[in-house]
């Protein structure tokens, strides 16, 4: 299987190893051991105060966050990557009515908005996803970030199929189901977006009429 030759860095990048087989460990200077991690965690707890919706439990890590922090800056061993992906894949829920594609116009607004979950944000207003912070999408929007790949022509490139629609839903719901320690937020799993919002963002990616695919 191809997988053996792929070494992941915890930042989500893929390095294709030139040699066949085996897992490669440790490239960059790795932040040290577990004990240090626990001390860092204790230090964190005493260094923050709850502010509005940003309460102190935001500092508590789930298993995925803990592993991704521990291996940050060095290659993620394949078994750990697989464990993370399996656990995250298991979190993905499809909508009860099976409808994965909504309104791309509303999806564009959600992709534009960076509002939400900061203590400076109004928690009674709907949150955005800020996809443009990290991705190119509609070619009309020139102010886009580059932390993630360009998604221009996402649907057109992948084909307007069921498989594409299902992949888009799942990737937005939980990006780490496909790429352990991805820098992309897990929008569905962490309740950043509602099902209805995910549906609209999926439409932005896969609707043939969306500017993304024109």
């Amino acid at each position: 299987m191809q997988r053996r030759n792929i070494v992941r860095t915890a930042s989500g990048a893929l390095l294709i190893a030139a040699t066949a087989g085996g897992v490669l460990y440790g490239c960059a200077s790795a932040p040290a051991d577990r004990a240090d991690g626990q001390r860092a965690e204790a230090m964190l707890k005493s260094s923050f105060k709850a502010h509005g919706q940003a309460t102190l439990d935001r500092l508590d890590q789930d298993e995925t966050q803990r592993l991704c922090s521990e291996y940050a800056g060095r290659a993620l061993p394949q078994p750990v990557a697989e464990r993370i992906e399996k656990a995250n894949l298991a979190t993905i829920r499809f909508p009860a009515d099976g409808k994965l594609v909504g309104d791309w116009k509303s999806g564009e607004k959600i992709a534009q908005s960076g509002r939400g979950f900061q203590y400076s944000d109004d928690p009674t207003k709907p949150a955005g996803a800020n996809c443009y912070a990290c991705h190119q999408l509609s070619p009309q929007e020139l102010s886009y970030g580059t932390i993630g790949p360009s998604l221009y022509q996402f649907g057109k490139r992948r084909g307007f199929t069921d498989e594409t629609r299902r992949y888009a839903w799942q990737k937005i719901y939980n990006a780490q189901a496909f790429n352990a320690c991805s820098n992309m937020p897990r929008f569905g799993h962490r309740h950043i977006l509602t099902d209805a919002q995910i549906r609209d963002v999926v439409a932005l990616l896969v609707d043939p009429a969306s500017p993304v695919n024109r």
Binding site: P31, A32, G37, R39, A40, M43, R58, Q65, R190, I192
Partner: peptide, 14 residues
């Protein structure tokens, strides 16, 4: 510890 903190993922957005 600062280095640890720099790589510490958490919160709603990881």
């Amino acid at each position: 510890l600062g280095e640890k903190m720099f790589y510490y993922r958490g919160g709603t957005h990881d």
